[in-house]
Simulated assay, not measured.
Amino acid sequence: MAVERKFPGIIDKPMSFCPGCGHGVISRIICECLEELGQDQNIIFPIGVGCSSNLGAGLTTDRLHCSHGRAAAVATGMKRVNPDNLVVTYQGDGDAYSIGLAESTNAAYRNENITVITVNNTNFGMTGGQMSWTTMEGQKTTTSQHGRDCSITGAPIRFPEMVAREFDIAYAARGSVSSPANIRKTKKFITEALKAQMNKEGYSIVEVLSPCPVNWGMTPIQAMERLDKEVEPYYPVGVIKARKEAK
C-alpha cells in the first residue's frame, strides 16, 4: 500500500532552523505553492546569506547561495538568461533591506520579472541578533542594547510599501506566521506573487513576518505573541499592491 507523502516533493530533508522560528513554515508553504502551480520542477532559488541559507540544504531544486545582500541582482541575471524558469529569492530582512538595499531597490525599480520572498524577523538572525533596518523602536539587540532609538537611527523600513508606492511593480503583499489564518493568507499572497511572474507582469514581493525566539530572548509562545501584538501593528498584513487581474 502506497504511503501518502505529507510534504512537498522538493523538500528533501529536515532543515535546521531554530525551534519556534517561522522559516520552516514559510519555506514549506513556498514549496506547496510551487507544487500546486506545477512549477516545482521549474524553479531556481537565489538564496540570501543568513538564516535563509538553511533553505538550500533541504531542497532538491536548483539554487545558489548569493553574496550577502546580492540575491536580487543574481536573480536578475538568472531570469534574463532563463526567462522560462521561475526565479524566487529567499532572504532575510538584514540581507534584503540593510546590506542588499541597493540591489533590492534596483530590481523593483526596473520591474524585473522575479519574485522576492523576504522573511522579516526584525534583526540579523544568524549573525548574532544585531539591529537591522526593520528592528522595532525600543527593541533591544546586540547593537542596540538600550533599545533602538529612532531619533538617531531612523524609523523601521517598510520596504514593500516603499517600492509599491514609488515603482511600477506587479505585486506586493505582507504575510505573517502568527496564526493558522495568517499562514493561509500568506500562502495566498505567495501564490499570487508567483502567478505575477508566470504571467510576465514584472516584480513581485511578499514580506513574511516571523518570530525569532533566540535573539528576542523569548520562549516560542512569547515570541509569537510579540509578533501578533507588537510587530504586526507596525507592519500590517495584507495586499499592498494587487496584480492587474486581482484588482
Rank of each mutant, 00 (worst) to 15 (best):
M1R: 04
R5I: 08
F7E: 07
P8K: 00
P8H: 01
I10Q: 05
F17N: 07
C18I: 05
C21D: 03
H23D: 09
G24L: 09
I26Q: 02
C31G: 01
E32A: 07
E32W: 09
C33H: 03
C33Q: 09
E35K: 12
G38Y: 01
Q39L: 12
D40H: 15
Q41K: 12
N42S: 00
I43K: 00
F45L: 14
I47L: 10
I47S: 05
S53H: 12
L59V: 12
T61V: 03
T61C: 05
D62I: 13
R63H: 14
H65F: 02
H68Y: 11
R70I: 01
R70M: 13
R70D: 05
A73I: 06
A73H: 02
M78D: 02
K79F: 13
K79Q: 03
R80A: 02
V81I: 12
L86D: 08
T89I: 15
Y90F: 15
Q91H: 07
S98E: 06
I99L: 13
G100V: 08
N106I: 07
A108Y: 11
A108F: 05
R110N: 14
N111T: 11
E112S: 02
V116S: 11
N120P: 04
N121Q: 00
N123H: 04
G125I: 08
G125K: 03
M126P: 14
G129M: 04
G129E: 08
Q130S: 11
Q130N: 04
S132T: 14
W133P: 05
T135S: 12
M136L: 12
T141E: 01
T153F: 10
P160W: 11
M162E: 10
V163W: 00
A164K: 09
A164Q: 13
R165I: 07
E166H: 14
F167T: 10
I169S: 10
A170S: 12
Y171M: 01
Y171E: 03
A173G: 06
R174W: 03
S176D: 01
S176H: 00
S176C: 05
S178M: 07
S178T: 06
P180A: 01
T186A: 09
K188P: 01
T191G: 03
E192I: 14
Q197I: 06
M198K: 15
K200G: 02
S204Q: 09
V214W: 03
T219M: 04
T219Y: 11
R226Q: 05
K241C: 08
A242N: 12
R243A: 09
K244C: 10
A246Q: 15
K247N: 13
